[in-house]
Design a protein around this nucleic acid. Structure first.
Lengths: 341, 341
DNA sequence: TTGTAAGCGTTATCAC
DNA sequence: GTGATAACGCTTACAA
């Protein structure tokens, strides 16, 4: 098989008796070019099957119209929707998207970020891994004048753009709803507390209890129950308490709430009558379980769009925009698993 | 804010009184370099905060260790899992992943593929959009010696590597199961027939009926019912027939099956007793509906891994490997929506 | 408007 | 082993 040489602008120039620079100008839609020459070049380019070489162009221009996205997992509804939202905007701007997943591992996250820096991406959009420690890799991004936008799970200390949910408010609202429905012994399934989002959700839970003068009980707060399996384990233990909870707020995720639901259902506990359940994230399945699960919608797709728009606003703005935090208020979605009035 | 200039290998060379080529050799782990020099360079590189420039390197080497993936939608469980599977493999090889979504639109798909070609990716992995016509953009990929692997929805005519599911067999198995459960008037919800996967699924349906000597009825085959909404519309019409079906095979997707389920449930029809329902794809929610939905698992994550491994096998193999098709047999997952014996 | 030439940061090919 | 140098394909001052 004969390896066909790529046609370059020089090949076109040679054929048309032009300078390469003119060809370049014609192809890049420059104003300083004769309309006829331009048309001729464009026509010849097609004939010769010319294809722009982005690598060369980017190197020369010192820029790469590509945005890197690092998320814990691609195949999670929340993240894939954020990515879809980002893509919606970047596509219309002609930007490419490089996607990496950290698998919740710090080392892998560092790898990903470094790879993106090596590739000179214009911006890194990241939601940090649960297993996370130092932030040198993110500081590195900033040092190299690459845009950095954190979302959802953010490192507060880093002075970057941030797009987050108001987790505390959402959590407060959810727990208040539970109280309003008459639940009094409300258990909390917590996520890893090194992540700010889970600290905030816990804060909302505590605030709600305080507002309603409900005692905070250590035995009802269960750390690190953020998968379906861990949620199930936690539920089994909670329901075995001498004085079991009458509601469980799985602040970590809907998967965790699903674990709660299954264990409770298997024990023949009536939901929502005997046990209220509230999840977090509005995964599609929460609408379909029986009973359907009350949860919190994070407007994931919209978040993605907001993030990407923020980037372009920032780079295109005349004045340098100061890092700011955009907070999107999540929405409590009340379903059958907590509606007992 | 002072824009800091990047350190290049020349900067390091200058500082150490070496030639740039030696620095390059040291950094790229070449054998033709003194161990001490190498150590010195590596140390200095860290000190000077050197970062490899992938754009320059790729240009020079004429290759880009990046794989482009084009899917109809990122935020669909099946596709995001395939992507996760691909990522699993490419990450371990140090390859990046550029993700594009066609949104089922042909024009957008062409855009995406062109962008990937411009970026000189090593390989394009694609599942084509429903709204599709010509295949010039894919031929282009081949012409430029870029790897092309089609998966799931493939264009048969193009001589490329393909990773597919055996849709016909799966479909045959599903419909046979329905027949075995005593269903006799089995309706089919079809996807766009320009896509081979939907033609194959229909073929499986027809084959199953034939094998069991069940008449094929036009009125029970409903074209283009491949979203939840369209599935609902189709179901409403089917159930209004003088002689309505006793089972519906939503061969297009689980979303479609969900539409069927909702309409039937609203009409007070008993599932599976009065109506059997079978979907396609094993979306997570099918396990959670009531009743749970019988469906077909496509091993999406595994498919992703297979695809990526196929690419590396192909490029690294000594001998040029001929394009081949890998068919992964999907698995029928029988759940309550069809189990009435 | 067009041409000339330098340079983006690497790596590969030669010499030494 | 190491150094000098050309080249990857493009863009952009600057000159004409």
């Amino acid at each position: 098989m004969e390896r066909q040489k790529r046609t370059t602008i020089y090949d076109i120039a040679l054929k048309l008796n032009l300078a390469a620079s003119s060809v370049s100008r014609a192809l890049s839609n420059s104003s300083k070019i004769n309309a006829e020459t331009k048309a001729l070049v464009l026509k010849t380019a097609v004939e010769m099957n010319y294809q722009h070489n982005a690598m060369a162009s980017n190197l020369r221009k010192g820029s790469n119209p590509t945005i890197g996205v690092v998320v814990p997992r691609i195949n999670q509804d929340y993240f894939s929707n954020v990515i879809a939202g980002i893509e919606e905007v970047t596509y219309s701007r002609g930007y490419s998207l490089i996607i990496c997943q950290s698998n919740e591992q710090h080392a892998r996250e560092v790898d990903c970020v470094n790879a993106l820096v090596n590739q000179h991406v214009s911006c890194v959009i990241i939601s940090i891994a649960a297993e996370t420690g130092t932030y040198g890799h993110l500081q590195q991004v900033l040092d190299r004048q690459i845009g950095l936008i954190q979302f959802d799970r953010v490192v507060d200390e880093l002075d970057t753009f941030k797009v987050i949910n108001n987790n505390e408010t959402a959590s407060l609202e959810a727990v208040s709803h539970l109280i309003e429905q008459g639940y009094r012994r409300i258990a909390l399934l917590e996520g890893p507390q090194q992540l700010d989002i889970f600290r905030q959700r816990k804060a909302g839970y505590l605030a709600a209890l305080r507002q309603h003068n409900i005692p905070v009980l250590e035995e009802l707060m269960y750390e690190n129950a953020w998968t379906k399996e861990l949620g199930a384990v936690a539920t089994a233990k909670l329901l075995d308490l001498e004085n079991p909870p009458d509601a469980i707020f799985a602040s970590t995720s809907d998967f965790s709430a699903l674990g709660v639901l299954e264990v409770a259902a298997n024990k023949g506990i009536q939901i929502p009558k005997e046990l209220g359940i509230c999840g977090y994230s509005n995964e599609p399945f929460t609408e379909l379980t029986s009973p359907s699960i009350t949860t919190i919608d994070q407007y994931s797709f919209k978040m993605g769009k907001t993030i990407a728009e923020l980037y372009f606003e920032q780079t295109e703005g005349k004045a340098q925009i100061k890092p700011k935090t955009i907070s999107i208020k999540p929405k409590l979605i009340v379903r059958k698993s907590t509606r007992r009035k």
